[in-house]
Design a protein around this nucleic acid. Structure first.
Lengths: 120, 120
DNA sequence: CCATTGGGTTTATTGAGATAAACCTCTTGT
DNA sequence: ACAAGAGGTTTATCTCAATAAACCCAATGG
């Protein structure tokens, strides 16, 4: 498995940690129960797998992330562009915007982001 | 299942059809064998499922698509933005570009696409 | 005639993601 | 002394995507 790949359930779960770390493992069990409807054993099972893969860490009942949200998101975004759009960001953008329009403000924000990434 | 959702294997398979339609079903079997390494039964099994879901059509041994590539890609792009980026395209772009830069030409192309989608 | 090929369907098998039941150990309050 | 709770692990179930084996029938060319 590639380093950062998170499956759907794993992603939702890891989001809880990103938003609340550092978090005590028993509290995490309660949070998962509340937000995802998971039983205690489910939480620990998923947690252990993510720790084994180097995504999370659980030390003395304190859970933190090793891989950060930005890195996981970056990986995710690049995977989808690669797999479904020939690695072409323009193709992705075209498909996403396909047909519908965006507001001027949104357009400005997007262009600003692009500016920022442009090598002078 | 949502209308346009294609799983990995289904997507690769449907790409063959998008790129070659209309295509005779026996030829499609050969093509799937060559490109994907699939057996005949695999091709027919997947084909039948996609027909049942209204994605493809197989009439008198001629296979064509009902859902077009642009529509499937649009769906795919919107799903990933929704599921992993709070539905925010800027968040997606930021993550995708994260750190690395792009060339001037790429930037221009992206801005042109954005221009085009901007309601005046 | 009957072997081959085209055009399929029916029924399995496998593998993995998602979820949890059952169990275990240690500590602590009463 | 013991119930309860914290902090887990082991083992299992269920669903479903991915893939295919085995079978079926009609047409056809030698």
């Amino acid at each position: 498995m590639e380093p950062y790949k998170l499956f759907d359930a794993e992603y939702k779960f890891t989001c809880l940690i990103w938003d609340n770390e550092p978090i005590n493992s028993t509290d995490l069990v309660k949070l998962s129960q509340a937000v995802l409807g998971w039983k205690k054993s489910t939480t620990y099972t998923v947690l252990r797998k993510l720790c084994k893969r180097g995504i999370l860490k659980n030390e003395e009942a304190t859970v933190t992330s090793i891989v950060k949200k930005e890195d996981a998101q970056k990986y995710e975004s690049q995977m989808v562009v690669e797999k479904s759009f020939n690695g072409s960001l323009p193709q992705f953008l075209t498909a996403f915007l396909g047909g519908k329009g965006i507001s001027n403000e949104e357009a400005e924000e997007l262009k600003r982001i692009i500016e920022e990434a442009t090598k002078s």
